[in-house]
Design a protein around this nucleic acid. Sequence first.
RNA 1: GGCCCAGUAGCUCAAUGGAUAGAGCAACAGCCUUCUAAGCUGUAGGUUCCUGGUUCGAGUCCAGGCUGGGUCACCA
Length: 596
Amino acid sequence: MDIEKIIKGKVIEAIDKLYGQSIEDKLIQIQTTRKDFAGDKTVVVFPFLRISRKSAEQTAQELGAWLVENLEQIADFNVVKGFLNLIFDNNFWIAELNEAVADDSWGFKPITDQSETVMIEYSSPNTNKPLHLGHIRNNLLGYSISEIMKANGNKVIKTNIVNDRGIHICKSMLAWQKWGKGETPASSGKKGDHLVGDYYVKFDQEYKKQIAGLVQTGMGEEEAKDKAPLMNEAREMLLKWEANDTEVRTLWEKMNSWVYEGFDQTYKALGVDFDKIYYESKTYTVGRDEVLRGLKEGAFEQREDSSVWANLESEGLDQKILLRSDGTSVYMTQDIGTAKLRYMDYPIDHMIYVVGNEQIYHFKVLSILLDKLGFKWGKDLYHFSYGMVELPQGKMKSREGTVVDADDLVAGMIEVARSVSQELGKLDGYSEAEKEEIYRTVALGALKYFILKVDPKKTMLFNPEESIDFNGNTGPFIQYTYARIQSVLRKASQAGIEYPEQVSILNLNSKESSLIKVLSSFPEIVKEAGENHSPALVANFAYDLAKEFNQFYHEFSIMNEPDTQTRYFRLLLSQVVGKTIKKAFSLLGIAVPERM
RNA sequence: GGCCCAGUAGCUCAAUGGAUAGAGCAACAGCCUUCUAAGCUGUAGGUUCCUGGUUCGAGUCCAGGCUGGGUCACCA
């Protein structure tokens, strides 16, 4: 039941009856009444003053009186300036609660044959280094927005594009050949992605030594960077790779497979997954073909050195290279190829790229290029850009060793969850396996919530010490609320209290109705989160609900409530709050523990 | 320099053009015979970067400025 719609209709009727004029639908503003005022929904009357030709207060009074008379759900009203606060009948809130109990889908749109297909690309790692904190924000946002889009009735295909080719991979391979002595993940005990990443670092160290050596002989720095033997070897290797050299390809496949095993572990730990993975090694040639087609059709131009360019000056942008003078692909070319393959593979209605905001320009260009190439979906691809994650000491820089590694971070969070739990003696009496499970759930809840509660668009600060805080506006606080609700329900069941699935009591106190008020806004929040691509809305809703419930929980007894009807009501209310927290958290990819 | 984004309590973050700008952390003062104290209650903390404009109403929209970040590669 959409109460706002009903009120709107009645307001139109009221204006007609009271002032003899019809009014446009969009002039009527209805909002949830702010917490510090009495009331449930508020009608803003300022837009009606021109019609009523009376003061704001008087107009609101007349309108309020009419609505109480003519709308059964409204019990009372009050007026503050131009704001008409409507107070709902208790039965309305009871009905809302009963509806929420009965409806497991929460009124979300079901996925049908007519649903739109949305492909969401996220993660997009390079195979030469392990995932870090920036990837974590990407992965969590990508996964969460996928779940939110699904809840809004879309068919979602989660996809990942792995950058598995290029000079950077050759650097790792070369270093492994030179200094690896046959080391493997099994022999070294390292995770595959970390092992390969270490050789990437090794290459860089040795490369820098060579540059320094050349500079000492009097060579300029730029020239030294270009002439260093290691760099030449890496380039040669890339050429061999492109020429399908068996030895290079075999090594490449071996090392990449190590990396994928490592990534899989990290993805699993984070709880994210994909329906389809693309590899740039398989898409870049498609991109090259598309660019050549565009060249033939006159969309692009070729220069004397035979490089291919797109001139975007008429769009207010500059010129963009698409194929190098040696005919090889650049980043943009690969994205064109990947896009084409995807649209051949799936009936995609919308494409969402979850990629950092430093690439806004790139996706603006990609959109125009796809459009120029005649792809009808090029124009409205959506770049879901998110802000960078900074540390208290500033930006993460791999060269300065300030990068926060994803695996280390998760392991560290679990450690803290363990020691805090032990200190509080929370889990005494549970088995080791159960304890470990809860530590993990809590640790990941803390990490995920900390990142997802922030507006994705904004640059955010990640303070490791604060992120592992379990008090206040945090994941564990909300999980804790859920666990307590489960505890109450368990106790009730043990005591043999069987409450009905529908309740009816006549009087609600203000905390109870305000709790239902927060609850019933959930579907609207999810819809908005989908439209604005913002898991943060869902996260902050979950916190509001949990906070509201905690206050309620402390103020009122549930198990010891003498009045049976009221006890049934409170048990049912607790159950629905628990269900809603669980559902909200599942949209964020966060698990809830039954006890903690 | 051109373009893009941000600036809100000491710190981290909220606030579909609406009312007295809200939470958490940190600080201070309380609450464990009572359904889980990873909790609850209270105190203190603000010229929403500045200057104008739009209107019944601006943290939010517009213009200009200040500060910070991003981007403008034959890197990805």
